[in-house]
Design a protein around this nucleic acid. Structure first.
Lengths: 240, 240
DNA sequence: AAGTGGTCTAGACCACGCG
DNA sequence: GCGTGGTCTAGACCACTTT
């Protein structure tokens, strides 16, 4: 009920404007944005302000800067979620495929989620789907996902852009992942996990519980992942 | 032999100056830096430049900004290494203790390290030590560490500040962790791991191989961690 | 009211990439 | 040589916190 009055910040206007153009495809991945001076002209402002806007887009992972050349639109790696299966990006020795095995369908929240749901989420039904990720035609990750149906409609799996749920959110709904929290555990494979990943029951499996926070207020995505790390360890990098 | 000529950037000078004062204890954790205007005066410059320097220190995790109050020195969370045992920070329900069980001593590189060593590292001996981390008096993490002896002398475990190797590097040697790469696997506990963590052989264990990059050229720290995640899962958060 | 950080203007010169 | 992003100056006003 309480309305938040938010002061207009010029660099936010510019930042949002450019982000939408990137998401909408006006500035496709690999292309260069207009130069800082051109943007100054478009928004009748100075380079300090434009550079602040670009700095934010840089932090958000939408662009990279190249001195003497320009600001290049890049594939957002960060939104993949910090953890990637070894070789998922960069190498061409891996063929990756994602198969939706259940849903998306409306159901009840699963108590396996180790994060505290918000009041709004508790009151809402949730959308659930399950996927299995394959590398070189072998199943490696079993992934369960949930989100509150109040915050976002059911998105049919046939609608997934390039099989990616996050890409769909970004390009079709302009929703971006802003951050994540994770819990990692090493557990023996349950019968269901073993069956889906084609391994023996009891083999050590990396279990990841994750909550993704998005740019859409109230919308969190919950994940419950089972990774067979025998041949494909999970990787991440971190730079200050 | 080749000397790199690096252009003086005023904000780097300011940034380095303040970082050293933080590391040296002139600005202890919890205190506030001089105001931006004061720093302007000290360095005969303008707020734009000072703010750029503070922005960098913010990214490095040394300070936080509080509007209307000032720039506060904070404990660097980032350098702990992205992954923390649940409850390690923030909660007081956990009593954490680290026991050095081997070394530090000079030895040969262990082939278990899954990262490609540099030529300089290969040619050097390495310093090795092993620690066991306890939570509430129960062993939870077995940790092996290595670094090239060429790049850094042997640091005696008695010299560790508050039992922390990273804190020692920062406060006694002014070396900071700049980033890290990790590989995570779920494996059955070996006999040695089981013995050190007081668990049964074969129980699923989270194995983490990590390379920390530091601010000292040529110095990488390698880690090989075995975590019993049964009671204390590994956590991390990520924000864009 | 005073002091702090946050935003913004209107310039300037430098370092880099490329034709 | 020209256009790009990177650094820097010298101001101004605003929003927030504290006294």
């Amino acid at each position: 009920m309480k309305a938040r009055k938010i002061k207009n910040r010029k660099y936010h206007t510019i930042q949002d404007f450019i982000r939408k153009r990137i998401q909408g495809g006006t500035y496709p991945v690999g292309s260069y944005l207009p130069s800082e001076n051109e943007i100054c002209g478009q928004f009748s402002t100075t380079r300090t302000t434009v550079r602040k806007a670009l700095d934010e887009l840089l932090k958000e992972g939408f662009i990279e800067k190249e001195q003497g050349k320009g600001s290049k639109v890049v594939e957002r790696r960060k939104s993949l979620g910090l953890l990637t299966v070894k070789g998922f990006s960069g190498s061409i020795d891996y063929e990756v495929k994602t198969i939706v095995t259940k849903g998306p369908k409306i159901t009840q929240w699963d108590p396996i989620i180790p994060f505290a749901l918000t009041e709004e989420e508790k009151k809402s039904d949730c959308v659930y789907f399950q996927r299995v990720r394959h590398i070189n035609d072998r199943p490696v990750v079993l992934e369960n996902n949930w989100y509150a149906n109040d915050a976002l409609q059911v998105i049919d799996s046939g609608e997934f852009i390039e099989g990616s749920f996050f890409k769909t959110l970004s390009q079709a709904y302009f929703i971006e992942v802003m951050g994540a929290e994770q819990e990692l555990r090493s557990i023996p494979a349950s019968q269901e996990v073993a069956k889906n990943l084609g391994i023996q029951e009891g083999i050590p499996i990396l279990h990841i519980s994750v909550r993704f926070r998005t740019s859409k207020p109230g919308l969190n995505l919950y994940g419950d992942l089972y990774c067979n790390t025998t041949d494909y360890p999970i990787r991440n990098s971190y730079f200050l």
